[in-house]
Every structure is written in structure tokens, then in C-alpha cells.
């Protein structure tokens, strides 16, 4: 049974300690960098596209990229990802086209995807209600005798939700191979962490569920990778779920519709921006001699090109057929569904 000692609240770090992660070669390190840049570029371009009126309201994930890229790199292709809206573009790391996710933010039905295709569940908009889905999936895979694990992403605010509790408890009772990945950016729109919980650390909650809880520096992509890899190995070996608390700080608005200046500590935001996760990793790779200017430029240009093509493809998509209103809600629709439709 997991126990928490105070020293375990220390954040696991790799980059700041100039450590190296066992088993990660230069190609792996560059692949992680490529994912970070793709996510960063997606996010920054999306804010611009929103301002240009090309996508709707958008949930920004700037400075959350390390948590997403680091954890996804620890997964195998058979493993399932359950994103919240903060991880809307995480499917890009699995091969979902940028245009598909842009469609989602454009309110276009072409933003629908088949979760089974890339093993990426639909983006969960309500807070924490996908945690039981991920628990059920992980449990169901285990019942089938498969080795797949699942990871569910949620924020610090979600830990106050009943669905988080029920999902975490289910996963523990069923010993489901689930990674509960908490992106603790310390803000739930305007609600600070201290108004969310009296727990010293969110990872302490794991003790009550009888699962290991670990804390990592959420801005350290390699610490996130390493912690997730251990959780994946534990899950695959039949060791059940793990709670990972990745601690960061939300350095951008909650979404394009939010103005955090009325509630946030702007000095703290500036400090976080100076220490943001992509720059930290880039500096680390340069210290290791793994990344040079030409490679960095090529990777950034590739990401920009992906986004240029993505938005072009999204904008080239014809307007959706209004008949889609009635499609897809049922396999066998009840009669009368179109009652009152004037189409």
C-alpha cells in the first residue's frame, strides 16, 4: 500500500539536474523535441487563427507541452489516450491530422474521429468525467488479456470532481492499468489551487485509493517521460493504476475567451514564461550536443508547414450538410427524429 512521506513531495526532475534518462538515445530525444515543437506551434498558431476568426473559442495549452509530449512518448501504440480539452491536439502525436483537430475547434463535424483508429478518445469537455471511461477501458483491456494501458489527462480542478474520484477508485479496485495524469497548473480558470484543495500535494490523494502517487516537474519533459514510463511498466505488469501529479503554472489564459489579468499573479506568469518548457528542453539538448541550429530550424519549419496545411485543409472543407444534425446519434434511429425539420 502506498504511503506518503514528506520528501516524496519533492518534484522529480531530469533537465535541471542535467541527468540523462536511461534508454533514451539521441533519436528519441529529438523525437520528443519534434513533438514539443509540433504542440507549441499548434497552440501558438491556434491563438492567431482564433484572432483571425478562423477557429472558434480555443483552450490554450502553452507551457503544457512537456506534460503531453513527455507522457505520450512513454506509451506504446496500443495504449489509449483520454484527453481533456487542454490536450485537444495530443492526437497529432498519434497521427491525427491537424485539420481534424482544427475542424473540432471550428465546430465542423469533420472534427469527429474514430477513437479506435488512433486509440485517442474524444476530447472531454466537462471536467473529469472521462476518468471513469479511461478506467473502464483499461479494465476492459485487462479483462481481454491485452497488454494495453490507458492514460487520462485532467487538471487540478478535476480532482475536486466526483467523476475523478469514482474513476480513480474503480481503476484501483479493478487494478486497471490506468495512468491518472494530473496537469496541476494551479489554476482552474480563476480558481487557485488553494481554493480547490487542502491537500498538501495532489499526489497525496493516491494514498487513499491504494495506488502510487508521484510528483514531477511538469515543465521537464524528460521527468514526465520517466515517471510515465514507470507507471506504464507497472500497469502492464499487472501493478494497477498510478497517479502522476505534474506541477506547472498556467502562463497563458485559460482560453481565448479569458482575461486572467483580473485574477492571476502577473509576476509569477512572467517568471514562468522565462522558464517555459520548450526553451528548457531546447537548452538541455544543446548542452548535450544533440540539437543544432539547422535541425531546430528544420523541425520548427516542419511544424509550421503542418499547421499551414492543416488550416488550409480545414478551410477548404465544404460547409457541413445540415442533415448531419440527425446522423450519428443512433445506429438505429427511432422514428419521429426528424419531426418538425423543414429541410
Amino acid at each position: 500500500m502506498a504511503r506518503v512521506a514528506s520528501e516524496e513531495h519533492e518534484l522529480r526532475r531530469v533537465i535541471d539536474e542535467d541527468r540523462e534518462v536511461d534508454g533514451l538515445g539521441a533519436d528519441d530525444l529529438l523525437a520528443i523535441y519534434r513533438s514539443l515543437i509540433l504542440l507549441r506551434t499548434y497552440d501558438e498558431r491556434s491563438v492567431v487563427y482564433h484572432r483571425q476568426g478562423r477557429i472558434g473559442t480555443y483552450a490554450i495549452f502553452w507551457n503544457h507541452e512537456a506534460m503531453q509530449a513527455g507522457s505520450v512518448h512513454a506509451l506504446a501504440d496500443e495504449d489509449w489516450i483520454f484527453p481533456s480539452y487542454r490536450e485537444s491536439a495530443i492526437g497529432l502525436l498519434r497521427g491525427i491530422p491537424a485539420s481534424t483537430v482544427l475542424h473540432w475547434w471550428r465546430g465542423h463535424p469533420a472534427g469527429w474521429w474514430n477513437p479506435a483508429e488512433h486509440r485517442v478518445a474524444s476530447i472531454c469537455v466537462p471536467i473529469g468525467t472521462h476518468v471513469p471511461h479511461a478506467a473502464g477501458l483499461a479494465w476492459g483491456e485487462k479483462l481481454k488479456g491485452s497488454s494495453a494501458v490507458a492514460i487520462a489527462y485532467f487538471g487540478d480542478g478535476a480532482t475536486s470532481e466526483g467523476a475523478f474520484h469514482e474513476g480513480a477508485n474503480f481503476a484501483a479496485v479493478m487494478q486497471a492499468p490506468l495512468i491518472l495524469f494530473c496537469n496541476n497548473n494551479q489554476w482552474a480558470i480563476s480558481t487557485p489551487l488553494e481554493a480547490q484543495t487542502r491537500a498538501e500535494a495532489l499526489s497525496d490523494k493516491a494514498v487513499g485509493y491504494g495506488m502510487p502517487g508521484v510528483r514531477v516537474d511538469g515543465g521537464d519533459v524528460l521527468a514526465v517521460y520517466e515517471a510515465t514510463r514507470e507507471a506504464v511498466e507497472r500497469g502492464r505488469a499487472g501493478g494497477g493504476p498510478t497517479f502522476i501529479e505534474a506541477v506547472s503554472y498556467r502562463a497563458a489564459p485559460h482560453a481565448t475567451a479569458d482575461d486572467p489579468r483580473v485574477y492571476i499573479d502577473l509576476d509569477r506568469v512572467e517568471e514562468e514564461k522565462r522558464n517555459e518548457c520548450v526553451g528548457r528542453y531546447e537548452a538541455y539538448l544543446r548542452r548535450l550536443g544533440v540539437l543544432d541550429d539547422a535541425t531546430a530550424e528544420e523541425i520548427k519549419n516542419d511544424a509550421l508547414e503542418t499547421m499551414r496545411r492543416g488550416i488550409a485543409a480545414a478551410e477548404a472543407e465544404p460547409e457541413p450538410d445540415p442533415e448531419l444534425v440527425f446522423d450519428n446519434a443512433y445506429v438505429l434511429p427511432p422514428p419521429g427524429l426528424r419531426e418538425g425539420w423543414d429541410g
Binding site: W80, A116, P132, G136, L137, A150, E166, F170, V173
Partner: peptide
């Protein structure tokens, strides 16, 4: 026999469906 958690029962049933149950 599940824990006493109705939202957990139905929520995990969604995930079970995704796994083919």
C-alpha cells in the same frame, strides 16, 4: 460486484464498450 458508484459504473461502462465489451 462494483464499488458503490453509479457514475463510476456507467462511466466505466463507456470505456468497456470502447474495449469491445
Amino acid at each position: 460486484d462494483t464499488p458503490l458508484a453509479e457514475a463510476g459504473i456507467l462511466g466505466s461502462a463507456i470505456g468497456l464498450c470502447m474495449a469491445g465489451w
